[in-house]
Write a protein that binds this DNA or RNA. Sequence first.
DNA 1: CGTCTATTTGAATGTACTCAAAAGCGGTGG
DNA 2: CCACCGCTTTTGAGTACATTCAAATAGACG
Lengths: 192, 192
Amino acid sequence: MFEQINKNVTRYHTFSKKELDLFNKLLKPVKYEKKAFLLQAGEVCNFEAFINKGCVMTYLLNEEGKETVLYFSIEDWWVSDLSSFNEQRKSDFYIQSLEDSEVLTLNPQTKEELLFHAPSFERVFRLMVQKNLSVMQNRLHSIIAKTAEQRYTDFIKRYPSIMQRVSQRHIASYLGVTPEFLSKIRAKQSKL
Amino acid sequence: MFEQINKNVTRYHTFSKKELDLFNKLLKPVKYEKKAFLLQAGEVCNFEAFINKGCVMTYLLNEEGKETVLYFSIEDWWVSDLSSFNEQRKSDFYIQSLEDSEVLTLNPQTKEELLFHAPSFERVFRLMVQKNLSVMQNRLHSIIAKTAEQRYTDFIKRYPSIMQRVSQRHIASYLGVTPEFLSKIRAKQSKL
DNA sequence: CGTCTATTTGAATGTACTCAAAAGCGGTGG
DNA sequence: CCACCGCTTTTGAGTACATTCAAATAGACG
């Protein structure tokens, strides 16, 4: 149950057995069925969730109901709306399970307790946000500087496993194109 | 000299006089002339800089030499390549002064010393990254879901002061359009 | 099996880009 | 202080990338 998550946090800092035990005791396992929402716009995000099994997406809806996927998250990733979680503000995001999923969650209280007794976790959380930021900077660059076809090629290469698990409609949204156009890109590439 | 920066960090956490004194002692003031580089691609970023006066931009160059502006930073903002700084890896970014600027910098050693003696700063840095991430998420959403014209309108409303200080060429790059097209957007809007 | 959603295909359209040339502007040196 | 040079901005024509809308096909699920 906790093997994967302990390996995950240990990448950033070496924790004592005692610290990891406390960490594991504070984590709450939760299961979500396919299509279930971990969070909906207007709610306050009260979790940081580590994905033990499954796949979820984080997206936004604009006024016309158009969906923009910000993240796909699979095993060994954390998912949350950090702004909402940390400032306890209403979120703009939807976080939805794309498969039956199992996650381990911290809430504001358990996170606080963790940081109080094992302050080194502060560093883990900072580095996680930072990695996140780095991913976002790359995406912004790629969407500004590259064509949809290049972005699609990059995506396949970088996230082959997500590619196989997620519908084209959602991938199109992640890449910032319409599903129709993604389909045309694929048709073109399969001819080569 | 330190008034602005102390106000800045106090937004995230209340520090003692002693902590602030240490903080200020560790900061190193640096001046940059207009067009000077704080960082160039291939170098390791060895600073986190708070801008006391001036304006800088962070950008990337792709293979064809096309420039993509990730950030404009002015007074009361921090600027750095956090991935490069924290992992001591070569940066992909250029950080360039757009005006004669004055900044206060931490380097890896002084930051470490600060965190050692005043660990509450860890929280400040985490929240700063997080705010940064939040801005990036918004930008990604806006570039995927909105037209260039809407993005330009949003930019003027949100950052009127940057608008006035930065050339259209750079703003175009920030918005993800060519300078020519931005000029056409402006021509169209001034007709209304 | 039938229904609902996802994907493909095509035609028409729109948004933004490229290239080229002219006009504007700012800084520098004489 | 003015003239010149280089860079930025504007304008226009032609083009490319991506969208919209519509309809057909394919897949998934109860």
